[in-house]
């Protein structure tokens, strides 16, 4: 009797465990600031977010922006990738620009000089001036006081038995577009090191 019960109980427990394992969620929402456990060796979501936050906040807090002639303006020119791995440059640039707009409303005017956006702006201005579309406000295109540029570099090493390491440095500088003076700079760096598991060698 006891043996029978324990057999039934064991079967029930096994089936429940199998059922639970089968029902475990394979996809779930995770915090983009936390390591996702998937592994990797490049620029991760937490790097992009931390970098965008750090750079925008530090620039707005530390850069000696000249506000004597009104709110200064800047545009983000992009990232120059000098690394040994491709990156999604547009994502990094867009996140920094978004945060500058969000946090720097009174400190700085952020211009969008993306080629496609500029093309849209010019086409709309032309249409307004030619009377093709209605437009009450006609303004001059804003010139920029500063430009924010960035560079990415890596030191990549590959060794025996699948050993590898990659040191990443993202450097950002703000340059005065009248004097060429570099008035602010900051960097964000991180390093990956590891080796390939035996099953991949």
């Amino acid at each position: 009797m006891n043996s029978c019960f324990s057999r039934t109980a064991r079967l029930a427990i096994t089936l429940t465990l199998v059922f639970l394992a089968g029902c475990a969620r394979s996809h779930m929402r995770v915090d983009p600031d936390v390591d996702d456990g998937v592994g990797g060796g490049g620029t991760e979501s937490q790097d992009v977010r931390t970098m965008a936050d750090q750079m925008s906040r530090d620039l707005l807090a530390q850069a000696p922006l000249d506000a004597s002639h009104g709110t200064p303006s800047l545009y983000v020119v992009g990232l120059d990738n000098n690394a040994s791995h491709p990156i999604d440059k547009r994502m990094v640039v867009e996140m920094i620009r978004t945060r500058l707009v969000q946090h720097g409303r009174d400190r700085v005017r952020v211009l969008n000089r993306d080629a496609s956006t500029l093309q849209e702006v010019q086409a709309e201005r032309l249409a307004k001036r030619e009377g093709a579309v209605e437009g009450s406000q006609k303004k001059a295109l804003l010139g920029s006081d500063y430009v924010l540029t960035g560079t990415v570099r890596t030191i990549s090493k590959r060794g025996r038995d699948g050993m590898s390491s990659d040191y990443w440095v993202y450097s950002f500088v703000l340059v005065d577009l009248e004097s060429s003076e570099q008035i602010w700079a900051n960097e964000y760096d991180f390093k990956w090191a590891g080796n390939r598991p035996a099953v991949y060698r």
Binding site: L79, D80, N81, N82, A83, S84, H85, P86, I87, K89, V152, S156, R158, G159, R160, D161, G162, R201
Partner: peptide
């Protein structure tokens, strides 16, 4: 990347190709 107008990202990819081609398990 080159066709997208990102020659720097293209160069980074080609450098990555050099690293990957050099990856060998037994000898370097």
């Amino acid at each position: 990347a080159f066709e997208r107008g990102e020659p720097d990202n293209a160069r980074a990819s080609f450098k990555e190709a050099m690293l990957r081609d050099a990856e060998q398990s037994e000898e370097e």
